[in-house]
Design a binder for these strands. Sequence first.
DNA 1: CCTTCATGCAACCTTATGGATGCGCTTTTA
DNA 2: TAAAAGCGCATCCATAAGGTTGCATGAAGG
Lengths: 124, 124
Amino acid sequence: MPKPLPDLRGPADPSTPQLAIHAARFAALGDPTRLGILVRLSDGAPRSIARLTEATDLTRQAVTKHLAVLAEAGIVRASRRGRETLFELEPAPLAAARQYLDAIAAQWEAALGRLKSFIEDPPH
Amino acid sequence: MPKPLPDLRGPADPSTPQLAIHAARFAALGDPTRLGILVRLSDGAPRSIARLTEATDLTRQAVTKHLAVLAEAGIVRASRRGRETLFELEPAPLAAARQYLDAIAAQWEAALGRLKSFIEDPPH
DNA sequence: CCTTCATGCAACCTTATGGATGCGCTTTTA
DNA sequence: TAAAAGCGCATCCATAAGGTTGCATGAAGG
C-alpha cells in the first residue's frame, strides 16, 4: 500500500505545512557545495569548519553559511570542542527526504498499476 | 555493497560535475509550490498549466516559471495538445535523486558498521 | 467571423542567496 | 605570555529567484 502522501489533488489543501518542511529540506540539499559537504561527512566522522573549508575553494565564512543552512534543515548537527566547532551528519532528516521521494514514486506506480488493470479488464 | 558515491574526502576532487547535476535536481525540488505540483502530478495524469494553477494562489505565469524549472531539471515533461500545454511527471530523475540519498545513507551505515566491529574486536 | 480560452514573451520589482572582507574574542601552543 | 589557530558577527555586493502585470498570438466554439 503506497504511503498516504498529502492529497493535493483536491481544491482545498490544508496539509501544506508538511510540504514546506520537505521543500526546505530539499532546498538545503540543492547546492553543490552543501551536497559535497554532506558526502564528506557521510563517513560519520565529525569535522571542523576549517577542515571542511580546505576541500573547497571558498572562504571559511561561505562554508560557515552553508553549514548554517544545513543545520537549519536539521541535516547536520554542530557541537563545540575546544576552539573548534565540529559538524556531523544527521541521518534522520535524510531518511525523511528519501521516504518522501519513495511516497511520490509509490503513488506513481500505483497509478500505473490501476491504468494497466483498467486496460486489461475495463469496467462495463 | 554501498554504492561508490564520488569520493570527496581526498584533497583533489575532479568528480564534481555529477555533484552539480544532483544538486540541481534537489534545488528543483526545494520549493513548496513545485513540490506540490509534483505531488499532484504523481497520479500519472498530465495536466495543463491552467489546471495546475487552480490549485495555487499564484498567477499562471508564476506556475509557468516553476514548471520551467522542473522541466529544466528533467523532473517533468511537457507536451502540446491543441491550445494547451500538458505536463506530466518523469519518474527517472526522481529515482536518481532517491538513489543518491540511498548512497549517502549506505555510506553512513557502512561507517557505523566499521566502527561497531572496531569496538567489538579492536585490532592489535 | 468574433469571442473566449490557454499560452508565450518581455519588462519590472523585491527579496533571498552565495560570497567576500574586516574585526574582535577565545582556545591552543610554542 | 605572546603568537597563532578557529570562529563568530556585522557589513557590503552582485546576481539569482519568486512573482506580478501587460500585451500578443494560436486554437476552439458558437
